[in-house]
Structure formats: structure tokens, C-alpha cells
């Protein structure tokens, strides 16, 4: 296979909040079809780095390049249309709507049907079927008619992942997808991420604290520390690095 240009690249990506540099000159390229784990202690800037890529925050400096196109100044929906998708660490759903409708709205956005105001939404059967297919995959189909705000936390976390899967972007960004899930629910989500990874067109960025999850899924690990990229490489190598050992052995006892 010939070496392609990376699907996603950040060059000198920086954001300052007043005097505090939350993400500091991060340059990193992500190849198509790979899964990169982003690790680092709490406050290292992992979620902020995600926010800069998916557009919730605008960079103070540096660039974000997707498929050779600079997207640094683009709005969130523009980036989404170009293939960046995000699942959030703090669950962010449509609380008064039911589970099926949450996923259906994603399928509808993907089909660019949002401004159709003359047809009945219930007539777009393929969007409903698509939603139910994804709900089946994440094993939420039994809750399809439940209103989201009444859902247990673990199911809300699953739905959070389901929304990203329904969007099916080229670049999938998972921010601690299994946090807050019960032990028996975690494998379902990990299996889904593994399946997405095997689909060669997808590029996955994963923020995760559980070292066993990272070991089994990641092709590569990058380490952020105080906003800067301090290590990048093969999972086995990176895990052995002193800075990682220190960060993980020091902060999260269950890891490593």
C-alpha cells in the first residue's frame, strides 16, 4: 500500500486561556484507518485538544487540516459535514426526545434533510430504520421509545456513542466512551469501536484512561502533558516510558 497523506493533521495547534496555555504547539498527523489513543493525566489538555479539532473551541494558533483542507476557522457543523464526528465525555443528548428520535436526528442530519419542511418526518422510513439499526448495535433497541431524560446513566452513555456511530464520520473522536458505564456494558462499546476500526476508512481518536482498553485497541499512543505532546509511538514503547508510568501510576491506581 502506498503511503497516503494523513487524513487529519494538527500543526503547532495552540490555545491560550489568558496566561494559561491549555494546548501548546501540538503537531501530530493521523493516518487513515488507524486508532490513536490520547493519554495523559487529568488537565493535560486531551479534551481541549479534541475541542480544537472538532471546533467547539477556536485555536489561538496553529492549524487543523482535514483531507488536505484547512478547517481551523470553520464552524462545528461545517467540520461535521466534512467528516469529523465527536462523542462527548459529558453526555450531551436531546433530553426531552426519545432514544430513537435522538439517533434519527443524526441520520437526518447526515442525509441533509433538516430543512425539508413539507414532508412528514415519519415518512422518511429509511432514517428511522437507520436509527433502529444503530440502536440494535449498541443494544439500546429495547429503550427506543423511552424519553432520554428518564434513561439510566449507563444507557445515556451508550446513546452518546450511538449518536457518533449513526453519524459514521471519517474521523471518530471518542472522549472516554466507557466512563460511567457498568462493567458488563463496557465490552459492548469496545467491540463496536473495534468493529469501526476494522473498517479501513475510519480513523479513530480515543481518549481513555483504562490501560487494558488502550493496549487491546490502539495502534499508536500519544501522550499529552501540560498541553504539550511529550510522547508518540507504538503502544508497548509508550506505555513503558517513565512519563507515562509516572502519570498513570501516580494518578489512576487501576491503570497500568
Amino acid at each position: 500500500m502506498t503511503k497516503e497523506h494523513p487524513i487529519l493533521e494538527t500543526e503547532g495547534l495552540t490555545i491560550r486561556f489568558g496566561g494559561h496555555v491549555a494546548v501548546d504547539q501540538v503537531s501530530c498527523a493521523f493516518d487513515r484507518g488507524t486508532l490513536t489513543a490520547i493519554v495523559g493525566p487529568n488537565g493535560a489538555g486531551k479534551t481541549t485538544y479534541f475541542n480544537l479539532i472538532s471546533g467547539q473551541l477556536r485555536a489561538s494558533g496553529g492549524t487543523v487540516i482535514l483531507n488536505g483542507e484547512e478547517i481551523t476557522r470553520m464552524s462545528v457543523p461545517e467540520r461535521t459535514k466534512r467528516g469529523i464526528g465527536r462523542a462527548f465525555q459529558l453526555t450531551s443528548l436531546f433530553p426531552t426526545l426519545n432514544v430513537r428520535e435522538n439517533v434519527r436526528l443524526v441520520a437526518q442530519a447526515k442525509a441533509s434533510k433538516g430543512f425539508d419542511m413539507l414532508s412528514m418526518a415519519s415518512r422518511h422510513v429509511h432514517l428511522i430504520e437507520r436509527a433502529e439499526h444503530v440502536l440494535n448495535e449498541v443494544r439500546l433497541i429495547d429503550q427506543a421509545d423511552s424519553v432520554v431524560s428518564a434513561l439510566p446513566h449507563g444507557d445515556q452513555r451508550k446513546l452518546e456513542v450511538a449518536l457518533l456511530i449513526a453519524l459514521g464520520p471519517q474521523v471518530l473522536m471518542f472522549d472516554e466512551p466507557t466512563a460511567g458505564m457498568s462493567v458488563d456494558e463496557v465490552p459492548v462499546i469496545l467491540e463496536l469501536i473495534r468493529k469501526l476500526k476494522n473498517d479501513m476508512d475510519r480513523t479513530i481518536l480515543l481518549v481513555e484512561h483504562k490501560m487494558d482498553v488502550i493496549r487491546s485497541l490502539a495502534d499508536r499512543i500519544i501522550v499529552l502533558h501540560n498541553g504539550a505532546l511529550v510522547a508518540d509511538g507504538d503502544p508497548a514503547e509508550v506505555i513503558a516510558l517513565p512519563v507515562v508510568q509516572e502519570a498513570y501510576l501516580g494518578k489512576t491506581p487501576e491503570a497500568a
Binding site: 462527548f88 436531546f94 426526545l97 436526528l105 419542511m117 414532508s119
Partner: peptide, 20 residues
């Protein structure tokens, strides 16, 4: 319509509506 459904999504959570 699909538009009306989207309005509800925007009402519920504009942040996520943008992200999808």
C-alpha cells in the same frame, strides 16, 4: 416535518445539534 424535528433538537441541545 424533518425541519420541525430539527427545531426540537435545537431547542433541547443546540450544542449537540451543531456537533451532528
Amino acid at each position: 416535518s424533518p425541519f420541525g424535528r430539527t427545531l426540537k433538537a435545537v431547542r433541547d441541545n443546540a450544542f449537540r445539534a451543531e456537533a451532528i
